[in-house]
């Protein structure tokens, strides 16, 4: 249902981004995979996409650096000429309490998680001109719930969700729909940062739905938000958490 579409997934080499890239390819999209450090993983994901009969292209770029974002979109313009879907998934952050945060850690986290969304969206819109498009940002429950050592990331995700609302209204006249997805803890390597906290790990492993959120759960929701059936959903942050946020103590 996304045949002929060109999608960019930032942070698309591993984990949630990889699942999203593969799902968009399942639906017929050609996929550009942005990555920062894990080239082999990006190449492997691209190869899986090609095996589905879709085009795949990988671009190394630290989305925390505006000039790298500029270069990435120049490469996309040169290779594909346009863009239909932007999935703002790349994320990073320092795991510290608020009182232990320094300016560097704050800037690193905000630049990659929040500023990059603005800069990527601005450039993506130019490539969507005259054809419309879909923009989906990946957030997390830490934007509204307090989680241990998640301060910087949680705040950056709150900014991302607010920006989603503003972009949704500002870009609607151009035929561009903008939404976000906030997941509870997702079963990926990124969760290892919390492996020291056994109690927390156990809490997340169980939800009312009976399991943790998997990357594929998010990928299918992203694909839905990229299809025309979701036309009237604008500027929303959709929670996908197996019921965790409404009943964290009931499993």
């Amino acid at each position: 249902m996304l045949e002929g579409k060109v999608a960019l997934v930032t942070g698309g080499s591993r984990g949630i981004g990889r699942a999203i890239a593969l799902e968009l390819a399942n639906e017929g999209a050609d996929v550009i995979i942005n990555y920062l450090r894990h080239r082999t993983a990006a190449q492997n994901t691209a190869e899986e996409i090609r095996q589905k009969g879709r085009q795949a292209h990988i671009i190394r770029a630290n989305v925390g650096e505006p000039d790298k974002i500029e270069s990435m979109f120049a490469e996309i313009a040169d290779k594909f000429g346009h863009l239909d879907i932007l999935v703002n998934n790349a994320a990073s952050g320092v795991a510290r309490k608020a009182m232990d945060l320094d300016e560097r850690g704050w800037a690193w986290t905000m630049d990659i998680n929040a500023r990059a969304f603005l800069l990527c969206a601005q450039r993506a819109v130019r490539l969507m001109e005259g054809r419309g498009g879909k923009i989906v940002a990946i957030s997390s429950l830490g934007s509204r719930l307090v989680m241990p050592v998640y301060t910087a990331v949680g705040v950056s995700k709150a900014a991302l969700e607010a920006l989603t609302r503003y972009l949704a209204i500002e870009l609607a006249p151009y035929g561009i729909a903008v939404n976000a997805i906030a997941a509870a803890a997702v079963q990926t390597e990124a969760l290892n940062v919390y492996k020291f906290n056994e109690k927390l790990s156990k809490t997340w492993q169980t939800t009312s739905a009976g399991r943790m959120v998997q990357p594929e759960d998010i990928a299918k929701l992203v694909a839905f938000l990229c299809r025309d059936e979701s036309f009237m959903i604008r500027g929303q942050t959709i929670i996908i958490d197996g019921g965790f946020s409404i009943a964290p103590l009931i499993t």
């Binding site: 450090r37 894990h38 080239r39 082999t40 630290n62 320092v94 795991a95 560097r104 690193w108």
Partner: peptide, 20 residues
């Protein structure tokens, strides 16, 4: 700290076009 190390790795991967 962990951020220093990530930034060092990113810078060296960029400079030498390698994967750590």
């Amino acid at each position: 700290d962990s951020l220093d190390i990530v930034q060092i790795l990113v810078a060296l991967e960029d400079h030498f076009d390698i994967e750590v």
